[in-house]
């Protein structure tokens, strides 16, 4: 494409967002004239969703949840790092202020971030972020190395990464203290599969995980 064509194309596809948005807004108003007035009054989501930035997994659409129902954080490979102020602010706000009942960490098979972390290559600026995934591999080295099939090993790392991030969430003071007082939030680990569009529950046992980590990471005392 000549550069002028590119500029025109960009403008058109960008305008599409606004047209689509107006269509969506009109549709919601037709269904419920009060929809946006109610929405505007505030949010009380039951869920915090921590997912991958991947464009193929818009949390609301794949769970059938509407605007106002799920608080969302998305980053590369759905990581929850102890020193990342970005995700820690989200968890803090969702637990302490919005008082969400469930926290869902959702990974997905075919994750480009996980794949990049398994690639023996200098990824520049991405190195420190992807390093967290390499650390998950090292924690589960024996299990992963025993899987002969490469794509199966990669799928398993996606799952183990989700479980590890669930553990990281449970390690936070916000979650431990709220759970001790209120009995929520409960942390869940899921993986989205492109084969069938379904979410696989990794059956993370919140209670047990909490007990296990509290031997070392107990932060319930204010």
């Amino acid at each position: 494409m000549a550069s002028q064509d590119v500029a025109k194309y960009l403008k058109e596809s960008h305008d599409r967002i606004f047209e689509n948005n107006r269509e969506w807004a009109a549709e919601q108003k037709a269904k419920d004239p009060e929809f946006f007035t109610k929405l505007s009054a505030g949010q009380e989501p039951d869920y915090l969703w921590i997912g991958c930035s991947d464009s193929r997994i818009p949390a609301e659409q794949i769970t059938g949840l509407g605007a106002g129902e799920v608080f969302i954080h998305r980053n590369i490979a759905n990581l929850v790092c102890n020193t990342d102020l970005n995700v820690m602010s989200v968890v803090n706000y969702a637990v302490r202020h919005l008082k969400v009942k469930h926290i869902i960490v959702c990974g997905h098979y075919g994750c480009g971030g996980v794949k990049a972390a398994l690639t023996p290559q200098d990824m520049g600026l991405l190195n420190p972020w992807l390093r967290n995934i390499r650390d998950v591999y090292r924690l589960h080295e024996n299990e992963l190395d025993a899987i002969a099939d490469e794509s199966k090993r990669y799928d398993r790392l996606v799952e183990l990464n989700v479980v590890e991030q669930c553990r990281n969430i449970i390690k936070t003071a916000a979650v431990q203290q709220s759970y001790a007082t209120n009995g929520f939030p409960i942390v869940h680990g899921w993986v989205f599969g492109f084969q069938d569009g379904l979410l696989k529950d990794l059956k993370v046992d919140h209670e047990k995980m909490l007990r296990d980590i509290q031997k070392i990471y107990n932060l319930t005392q204010g």
């Binding site: 967002i17 689509n20 948005n21 969506w24 807004a25 929405l39 949010q43 989501p45 818009p58 949390a59 609301e60 659409q61 509407g66 605007a67 106002g68 129902e69 799920v70 608080f71 969302i72 954080h73 989200v90 706000y93 969702a94």
Partner: peptide
């Protein structure tokens, strides 16, 4: 992160 601004849905 606000639950009322789901990008893919509103666009």
């Amino acid at each position: 992160a606000d639950s009322r601004v789901p990008e893919t849905t509103v666009c």
